[in-house]
Design a binder for these strands. Sequence first.
DNA 1: AGCCAGGCTACCG
DNA 2: CGGTAGCATGGC
Length: 211
Amino acid sequence: MTPLKLYKKLFSLYGAQGWWPVRSEHKGRGYHPNEFGLPKTRKGRFEVCMGAILTQNTAWTQVEKALINLFAAKISTPEKILKTDDKTIATLITPAGYRNQKTKYLKNIAEWFVNNSPLEPVRSDLLKVKGVGRETADSILLYAFHLPTFVIDTYTKRALAALKIFDEKTPYETLRSWFMENLELSVPLFQEYHALFVELGKNKEYSKLFP
DNA sequence: AGCCAGGCTACCG
DNA sequence: CGGTAGCATGGC
């Protein structure tokens, strides 16, 4: 099974997903299938960064509540995150869990964003930010900045394990390389592919991968 | 009523 | 390096 064949299999099962939801640029409607140009603005890019932190080990439905709380409080820029006290942010993001940790992480990514966003982001710099691991970094690069990096998450690992291509504890970088070395470096392809793995995982339909 | 969500850090051997 | 506790909340 090649990465491309697996992609085609998943796409035939679920079709276009429209990741990542960008509320501030999509009339608050969330997903936007077959639209790979979003976000287009600084605000939208930072929204994706916040979402990437907030969704760590957390269901997206909870993340949306946290984001809506932040927007309602007019906290939607890195500058505003940085000058709001921790307690206030923690309360607003409560639905997304780990509120104290994620408050610090949001401030860290806000500081990174202020200092780096005019330039093209570099993966190794992003990984130095406390609170940003490999998956979060790759999500930010791929969905906020449209750089062709492959995102590996729990569902991806489970799918590859179900297919017996790699076992569950294969290192992140090994899996990422397998995709990136065997596919064209395409942002729409990588965005859609990761989204399809999540859809598969949510539905727990790994058995459907077999002929 | 547990188990799991679109993980990461700190710390251990 | 690989392995694991702790972090928080809500849906099922």
